[in-house]
Design a protein around this nucleic acid. Sequence first.
DNA 1: AACCAGGACGTGA
DNA 2: TCACGTCATGGT
Length: 237
Amino acid sequence: MLTHNIKMNKIERIYSSLYKKYGPQGWWPLLELNIKGVNPTKTGSMKGYHPGDYSYPCTEKQRFEICVGAILTQNTSWIQAEKSLSNLNSAKILNPKSIIEIERGKLASLIKPAGYFNQKSRKLKEFSDFYFGLKGKIPSREQLLNVWGIGEETADSMLLYAFKIPTFVVDAYTKRIFSALGIINKNAKYSEIKPLFESSIKKNLEIYQEYHALIVEHGKRIMEKNNQAAFAADLHL
DNA sequence: AACCAGGACGTGA
DNA sequence: TCACGTCATGGT
């Protein structure tokens, strides 16, 4: 990992600090792993993660599941998205063809726990249509952004965790934490933050997957304590 | 009992 | 471009 480097920039040092503090996060969580019982200690849902194992997704179904999860978790806690995901799986419609064919209202009721069910049911249908047309190919970022309901973070999450392309994911926690650390200003745009990270860290899939996951984990813990001022202190910088 | 969650889109300035 | 409003359930 990055700790082998003697000269690390600030962004790399924060990664090392987070990794040392929390360890590998095992993103993206997958439903099937709940049964196996891979179960690290962490905030929120404690199932589905596979820390230190970067072989996932190893099936087409898992790849699609990650994309669906990325849409369901938009502005929604993972625990709620996971319930919806589980509903889809139980209904045996966790595949593009079934989501295209199912009645929209019925789809909406299945994903109710994740909130925004009218918007998200439409998003899932439009994305499934797109995914079906890929026929196994890996989409470009631009292609993903052209799908209604997929913005920058969702597109990057899909690329990083479902399609295994090292691209940096910026989320609300990233903005809060790194603006609190004085590394970016708090109204910095996605299109400015992303290249900052990508120019600071070598493009390594495992590191990019871990970094975003670690930021979310740290963000959650800080928010639990309701103490955003402790961002920097908690990183021992 | 307000506040927020692993955002994105539509609208009017 | 940008600042807001909207979408919606369930935790704490």
